[in-house]
Every structure is written in structure tokens, then in C-alpha cells.
Simulated scan of single mutants.
Amino acid sequence: MTPTTIRTWSTDLTDPGERGEAYGRAWRDQVRTTLAEYDTLFAGRGVDPATVRAIAEESRAVVDRHAPELLAEIDGVARGAGRQPWQAMAINARTEILARAAAVEECSTAVVLPADGGTPRTIQTWDWYAQMAHETVVRSLPTADGARVVAFGEHGQVAKIGVSSRGVGVHLNILQHTTDGSQVGVPVHVVARMILDRAGTLADALAVVDGVPLGASTVLTVVTAEPAAACVELSPAGWAALRATPGEPLLHTNHFLDPGLAAGEAAANPYSTTRERLAFLGARADAFAAVDPLARVAALASDEPGSVCVDPDPRRAPDDRPQTKATLTIDVGRPALGLAASHPRDITPQEWLTVPA
């Protein structure tokens, strides 16, 4: 197992460009390492440097149209880290770039809306390649209207998983559709941050999704303090919201559940465990209603084949072995992000980090 370290960074800077530049300066080496790791990954997947730059530049243009403040922040990261703007965008558009290559998979997410009307209970494992993301970061920053966002991601990304002080949280799992790469879209990591920055309700989050073009597929599981929750499956072919029912689990791994989108699903990696992991979650659904985040973590702690604790698979190529890098929960009532770097089975109470929004 390759260990992952989670760093934290907080700022009160409200100007997006200044905020990005301050972050880029503070984490210059880590941003450069993330970029180098992705350069290697893209090359290993057969995506040549010219194509990477072209997709990143196209992504810059579409982000400028739909979220210019986030383009300013990403450009600021590039300045602070001493890299080109398109390179910082490539980190954020990694899903869209990998959509031009072989299938990838990551992550398992579970949500329960309590039957008594309480706020959603959530948990997610984040899986990524063993050779990457040896450091990740939780950023705490203000929004334009005075709210606050706490966002977890790889160094240089605007968001992956997070929560806002408005009581809106976002989990992320990758998906793959036959239309991926067929058009230029707002990177899904940018869409996640747009929801965190702008939404106060599930309806607001769906309006964000409905207002942007997409170039690659993912599922954003949105939870709100209303209470409400939905797995929002995204693809260039369209999107669908699978809404939670109080008292019943809302589960997602790495295949489409909406019948219409599932009809166009791309072929999965032959080693994918997405369906086994979904079944594993379903067998433990009652435990996800626990108020204590660590009780939810304990429910996922398992060495069973097909569990959500993903270990590098020796049958796969050395640069194609995902592993569980982190486990996260979202509390939209507090609101706060809870997390630790590791499998659920390896997490101790002392390692659990809670970052309030």
C-alpha cells in the first residue's frame, strides 16, 4: 500500500485570482508533482502532450464562459506554482483528458436520508492509482456571497468532494459513457465546485448541472440540509438525477443506474469491481444511517473480496492498480467534512479529521 497524506489550507482571500496564486505559492512543489504524475499517466494511457494541451485549452474557454471566477482561481494557481495556465487546467480536466483513453474506475458512495427527517448521513471511499496522490489537500475558502466552502482534492484541483456552510455537500464517482470525449465541456471537478459555491438547495445544484455542457461522465451525489439527496449522473449525452427516498439507502459505484444513460455505457475495465462494491454497500445499508461518522467507517471495514476497501490488484499492470486513498463523510447539518487517509479498515479515531465549513 502507498500511503497518502492529507494536508489542510485555509484562506480568507475573496479575489479568486489572488486566492489561487496564494495557494499555488504555498503548495508549489505539490502542484508540480501532481502535474508530473498526470503527465506520466496521460502518456501511459496513450494521450499525447499535444492532445492534453488542446483539451486543457478548450476547457479553459468553456470554464471562462460558465465560471470565470474559477478560471481566475485556476490561472492563479498556475502563476503561484510557476506553471502555464493550461497545465493547471489539465489537473482539473483530468477526467475529460482520460475520457480519450482506456477505462478507469474509482470510488464507492453511500447516503441515507433518515426516515425521521434528519439530515443525510454519508460516506465515500476515494480510490485512485497507487502511484499517484501521495499528498492531497482540504481547502477552506470563502465564496463571493460570504459563505464558506471546504473542498477535498488533489493538489491544484478546485474541488472533488466537499461541503459548504449553506449545508450542501458533494461526493464524486467516475463513470464512463460512449459519448465521453465527443464534445468540449466544463470539467466535472469544476462542476462540483460550482455546486459548492452557488447552491443552497438540491434544486439549485440541479440548475447548475443543467446549465453547463459536459465532456466526460461522472456521478455527483449531492446532499443538502433540506434534507434531500440525489445521485446526479452526468454525461455528454445528458444527465439524470436519482433521488433519495427517506429511510432507504442511496448507493453508487462506477456504473450508470439510470436506464437511459446505462444503455450508452462504455465497456468497463475487465478487472472492475463496481458491481461487487455496489452489492457490498447494499448488504450494509442499515449501518450507514449511524449518526457517528466512525460507525459508518466501521461498517465498511472489510477484507472480503469485492469490498470497498480496494487494494492494488497484482493481475493489472503496475501503473493501472487503483487503491483506496481516503475515506470521507459529509455532515450538512454542522456542516463539516470528515476524512482520513486510508481504507475504512485501517482508520483509527485518532486519525479522523473533521474540517468545519
Rank of each mutant, 00 (worst) to 15 (best):
T2M: 07
P3T: 03
T5V: 03
R7M: 06
T8C: 01
D15M: 09
R19Q: 10
G20I: 05
Y23V: 02
Y23T: 08
R25S: 11
D29T: 04
D29M: 01
L41E: 03
L41F: 15
F42E: 00
R45P: 00
P49R: 04
A50N: 10
A56P: 13
A56T: 03
D64K: 06
H66G: 07
P68L: 08
L70I: 05
A72T: 07
I74T: 10
A78N: 12
R79A: 10
R83A: 05
Q87W: 04
M89Q: 09
M89H: 12
A90K: 00
I91D: 00
I97F: 07
A99L: 02
V104S: 06
E105F: 15
E105H: 03
A110H: 02
A110F: 03
V111A: 10
A115H: 09
A130E: 06
H134L: 13
H134P: 01
T136L: 00
V138N: 11
L141M: 11
P142V: 01
G146P: 05
A147E: 11
A151N: 01
G153L: 05
E154D: 13
G162Y: 12
V163Y: 03
V163T: 10
S165M: 09
S165R: 06
S165K: 10
G167V: 03
G167L: 04
N173R: 06
H177E: 04
S182Q: 15
Q183K: 01
A207V: 00
D210E: 12
T218R: 12
V223W: 01
P227K: 15
P227S: 13
A228I: 00
V232R: 03
V232E: 13
S235W: 02
A244P: 09
H252R: 10
L261P: 10
A262I: 05
E265T: 14
L281M: 13
A283L: 12
F288M: 08
L294K: 09
V297T: 05
V297A: 01
A298G: 14
P305S: 10
G306Q: 11
V310T: 12
D313Y: 07
R315Q: 14
P322I: 02
V332K: 11
R334M: 08
P335V: 05
A336T: 11
L337F: 12
P349D: 15
E351H: 11
T354F: 07
V355Q: 07
